[in-house]
Design a protein around this nucleic acid. Sequence first.
RNA 1: UACCCCGUGGUGUAACGGUAACACAGGAGAUUUUGGAUCUCUUAUUCAAGGUUCGAAUCCUUGCGGGGUAGCCA
Length: 570
Amino acid sequence: MSVESTPPAAPSLDFIREIIAEDLASGACGGQVVTRFPPEPNGYLHLGHAKSICLNFGLAQEHAPHARCHLRFDDTNPTKEEVEYVESIQEDVRWLGFDWGTHLYYASDYFEKLYSFALQLIDKGLAYVDDQSAEEIRQGRGTLTSPGVASPYRDRSPSENRALFERMRAGEFKEGERVLRARIDMGSPNMNLRDPVLYRVLHAHHHRTGDAWCLYPMYDYAHPLSDALEGITHSLCTLEFEHHRPLYDWLIEHVDGLPSRPKQREFARLNLTYTLMSKRKLLRLVREGLVSGWNDPRMPTLSGIRRRGYPAAAVRQFCKAIGLTKYPSLTELNLLEHHVREELNRISRRVYAVLNPVRVVLTNYPEGQVEFLEIPNNPEDEGAGSRQVPLSRELFIEAEDFMQHPVPGFHRLVPGGEVRLKYAFCIICQEVITDANGAVVELRCTYDDATRRGAKPVGRPKVKGTIHWVSAAHALEVPVRLYDRLFTAEEPESAGEQEGDFTAALNPASLLEVSARIEPSIAEAAPAAHYQFERVGYFFTDPQDSRPGAPVFNRTVTLKEGFTIKPTAA
RNA sequence: UACCCCGUGGUGUAACGGUAACACAGGAGAUUUUGGAUCUCUUAUUCAAGGUUCGAAUCCUUGCGGGGUAGCCA
């Protein structure tokens, strides 16, 4: 017996998912959801692509088993594309956690079909070969406020066009001598409809088709037809293609014999504060050596953030959190960092590392004695187990954990004051030794055996601070790279407005290399492992530069900071 | 200044003609062997003006603001 129950609160759908739900309900897409992620292999994928990947592959997962997502390389411009990029793109999509199964395609696979479709348009009088130069075509196109004028070649006969187009394919023309144009409307307020170029001659070697072609289709022509050939139901792209949609539809409408009629929809691209999301500009950072490469941990590329230690799950969560709209938003970096910390807090082993050491001598601790303390690996995760950490008479603590002249609110070590060494005992600073310049070089302290194991003897003032430490004799020295945001400006693209150069906003302190004193258990660290340096931040063993027994650490993100010493205003 | 798209707390989103809510960020407190985490509480929102309606963030008009578009790039 079925009982009428209150309908479960429908999860709110974004506008794309709403459209898909409607299409599914009306049967407009044949009960299937087929999407595609169509990068051009001309660079590395970045966080903006992650948004698109999560959308397209996510949709396929949500509608399984009546759905799939294709990975298609939009390789119609051989002058910019390389196999290096097609390989990195596949690696990045997989890393993000998605799988295209057998559905790997290349627009270049369709060159022959696309060519025959062009012949068809020519025969219908819907396309013509234009002999004008690029400059003449540009002039003829008109401007945003004035209509274009027809090319003198616009009314060539289909047979003449066909013969010319065949000769273009045969290699009889130099680059720029002839193009194929759609015959639409030179007076259209939409520039894309003013007889857009469909094919151009390019005597270039293609990374897949080699020298088989010297005639290459334009994106606007190849994309809708490739979508149709693959049976894509929903072709999702970013807002700047909005004005291309009428052309997309025009081609689907006028080419006969297409197996499906895909629909293009547009959403806003991702913008993030303190970074760039333009392949062209990222390429410039790489080319000019402003970063170490596409996978520099400061880069917003997927290979960069992966090397920095951002977990794929955090990126997926972030993509879910930012939503999907047509509003050209600017998302705060700290939302991404929030998801990174949330994930890392769950999975990271804790470890003690001192980045900026000050020597502490425990004057009442027996010389030569070493003890091992059992310390949990992750208090958030019982199953993570524990480790033995050596403790001895001489230690290092963080220089920032001691203040000779403390400011109000400082809870850590001060002259004559007491602080807890985490998982060890409390110490009192008895003497401060400084060098000739007054810099603190050593703290002579006494420890209190009654405060072991977190004990708080009654009747004593409360110890507010707990700090991390390492045994001086046992600590390892490891290279640590402290990464910070690449740019100092929220919107680096508009920051260098005067000079018109985003490099003006580069953060000079985006990378600081230091040598850290770290507990010896770290010698076993695997490459590509996440750690939390307690009270400092999350760190990742660099997959490229770490060696067995000799890890190199990248700071993924700092811990959220509570107390900060405010610079005292004069 | 032609056409298209978009305007909801500081930021990003939800509310689909019927009580403006969630997350991040900010603030306060509790708790804590990480000034982390966790848990409470809290500050703050419909671009503007008209109109339709019993009722408008939602529909209409105008204005204002933001974004996009004039590659033989994608």
